[in-house]
Amino acid sequence: MRLKVDGVSKEFGGTRVLAGASLSVADGELAAVLGPSGCGKTTLLRIVAGFESADAGTVAIGGVDVTGLPPERRRIGIVPQEAALFPHLTVARNVAFGLPRGGRRDERVAECLNLVGLSGYGERMPHELSGGQQQRVALARALAPRPGVVLLDEPFNALDRSLRVSVREDVRDALKKADATAVLVTHDQEEAMSMADTVAVMREGLIVQKGDPASVYAAPHDLGVATFVGEAVVLDASAERGVASCALGSLPLRSGGGGGRGRVAVRPEQFVVTPPEAGVAGLVERVEFFGHDAALTVALDNGVVIRARTRGDVPHRPGDRVGVGVEGPVLFFEL
């Protein structure tokens, strides 16, 4: 169901955590709320769930105002950071916890366990499962009563990296198959970008930008968002008629509008490494090899240090002289 959060504010002991945050998530959409720790994203989630009450603002689920309702009447599902399965109940009874008595309870439990790929685990106790399995059971438990909205609070934090990617995919698949509306809270931009349909960037108690991952990355609202959602080299610049002049030369702007003094942000994948005379000359400082690609740190002769993404078979070594050029339009933000 549709989720609409409107102008929610919250203070804890005089500290303003939410400053009128608004967010709307369409039916069946998986939205990520992305922000650094302390930006208020967990508080926002807790207010949507009904665990905290907002000082101002409203929360509506499926068009119904639930601001004043206790959590048990909001029809939300929650997947907390560390699964928080009921340790005294079997997996099946954990999943069945939110289902009405009688009816087709067992069937729904089996269905949900199947959805998260854990058929046949029903009689296990939570402590007999791995962290990833516990997290998937937590999702099955949240999905079982067909909630209006599923809230996921940094659900992959406790998992190790290799596991995280596969559990992430499982969770996304299960949410999509269940056709659930979901909000994922995370500080990990890669997680937000790769999983969510839309990303809402949060800062200092406000949602500053919301859009699909590609457009947030390509057209960030301000410099802060630009550097938070992805790596960038930021340089002082002055712009005039769609062109910025900076330490890397004259570069075309992505959005033609701006002018005057400001800053440009160049993504690492925009850099091209050339022979020294073909670009801005500099000295290779460091080569980081990742397998599928590599990163080159270059100290330019004009004092600027840049980090460029290149192909994996990079021929350069530290100490080599190279040139650096920029491909495509760059982001410009007025001061």
């Binding site: 959590p71 048990e72 599902g77 928080a84 399965l85 809230l151």
Partner: peptide, 16 residues
């Protein structure tokens, strides 16, 4: 019984 476990139970439709 950590508070988060109780919160999950609340979200699954149980009153206090």
């Amino acid at each position: 019984a950590p508070p988060v476990v109780e919160e999950v139970a609340r979200s699954l439709g149980r009153g206090p």
